[in-house]
Structures are given as C-alpha cells and as structure tokens.
C-alpha cells in the first residue's frame, strides 16, 4: 500500500513541481505589480514632502521587492532549463521575465535618483509629474496583466496589450508637455536639465513596457497551436 502511494506520489511529482513553479511566476508578477504601486506612492510623497522618512521607506520596499523578484526569476529559469520544461517556449519565458525584471530595475533606479539627487520640483509641475507617474504605472500594470494572460489565457493577451500602447502614448504626451513647460521657465539651464532627467527617468518605464509588449506579441504568436 505504502509502495503504491509512493509510486502515485512519484507519478504526480511533475504536476506538483509544475504547481510550485506556477506560484513562483505568479509571485514574480505580483512583486512587479506591487513595485509599481509603491513607485507611484513614493513619487507622490516626494512631491509633497521631499525625500522624507516615508519616501525612504517606500524606496527600501521597492529595493527589497526587486531583489526578491530577482531570486524568483533565477529560480524559475533554472528549473525551466534543468527540468527541460516547456522546451518550445522557455527561451521566450526567459526573455519575458528578464524584460519584466528590467521594469523593476527602472522603478528602483528612478527612486534612487530622487533620493540621491533630490531635484527641486516647483509646485506648478507637481500635477504633471503625478499624471506621468500614473500613466507609466498603468502601462506597466497592463504588461503585467498581459504577461499573466500569456501564461494562463493566451487569447486574452491582446486585451491588455493595446492598453500598454495607449498608456505609453499618453505618457509620451505628458512628458513632452512637461519638458516644454520646464524649458519655458526662467530656471537656470542646469535645473531645467535636471528636471528633464527626472521626466525621462519616469517616462522610461512606459517605453520599456512598450518594448516588452512588442516582444510579448511575438511570443504569443509563437505559442499558438
């Protein structure tokens, strides 16, 4: 009886491993999604209070999520390759996770720049910075949903992809408007350039989300039966 049970256990082992791996991928995407929300909140705090203790707390939280996501990504990829799982798609999954991870890197990098460089952002720009933040996080959130669909419901990928493109365009519009407004002021050039850098730090997230979406579109075509 015990032997029979252990046989059954061994037989079902691939399915157990698969379930654990699914959870790891989900956890990775959760961390990316949570980082976006923390990023948005951190920028909001910075605009209101500067590099306060609360801002620092958010930065540390994003930092922690980034290293946890890194560990998950490495674990998933190692398992995919050592257990020769999804031979047709593992290269694509590797590319997708690496690209998604770079979004986390951009969140973290932008927040570190705020913390180190502490740009002086006049109140007149706060609204546009906040809107820009909103748009890029929306774009990143849409790519997280598209990636979840890639794993769970391939036909729903398209439902989220067009939102990535939409929010990226919106972010572009806001960033252009913001840059024009910055350079139209009487601020010294070094401050204008400094403020522009921060617009780009934030806008880069949406641009990267669009790059990931372009790749994901190809991976999705390849995954069709």
């Amino acid at each position: 009886m015990a032997a029979k049970e252990s046989m059954l256990g061994r037989g079902l082992l691939p399915f157990r491993r698969t379930k654990a791996l699914e959870s790891e991928i989900d956890a990775f995407l959760d961390k990316l999604s949570e980082s976006g929300l923390l990023f948005k909140r951190a920028v909001q705090i910075y605009l209101e209070e500067g590099a306060s203790a609360e801002f620092d707390q958010k930065l540390q939280a994003v930092n922690r999520l980034e290293s946890e996501a890194d560990k998950l990504r490495r674990s998933v990829i190692t398992q995919l390759y050592t257990q020769t799982l999804i031979p047709e798609s593992r290269g694509d999954v590797l590319g997708l996770l690496e690209n998604l991870d770079s979004l986390l890197g951009l969140y973290e990098g932008a927040l570190w720049s705020f913390s180190i460089e502490q740009p002086e952002i006049s109140a007149e720009f706060h609204g546009d910075y906040a809107t820009l933040c909103d748009q890029v996080v929306h774009a990143a959130e849409a790519i997280v949903l598209a990636s979840r669909a890639f794993f769970r419901n391939i036909e729903a990928v398209g439902d989220h992809m067009h939102k990535v493109m939409f929010y990226e365009k919106e972010a572009d519009k806001v960033s252009t408007k913001l840059k024009r407004a910055i350079f139209a002021t009487d601020l010294p050039l070094y401050r204008k350039a400094h403020l522009r850098n921060f617009v780009e730090h934030i806008d880069n997230v949406a641009d990267r989300a669009e790059d990931v979406a372009d790749r994901l579109a190809i991976y999705t075509i390849k995954r069709s039966f």
Binding site: P14, T18, I86, F151, F225
Partner: peptide, 21 residues
C-alpha cells in the same frame, strides 16, 4: 483538442506537463 484547451485555459506549465504525459 485546441477547443478544449481554449476553454480549460490551463497554465502554460500545466499544459506542458499534461502534453508530456
């Protein structure tokens, strides 16, 4: 088969495990 997979929507990894078996 494709109709069943589309309606069951298995995770990519689970589909892989079922396909192997």
């Amino acid at each position: 088969t494709t109709r069943i997979i589309r309606s069951a929507k298995p995770h990519l990894l689970r589909q892989d495990a079922y396909t192997r078996a």
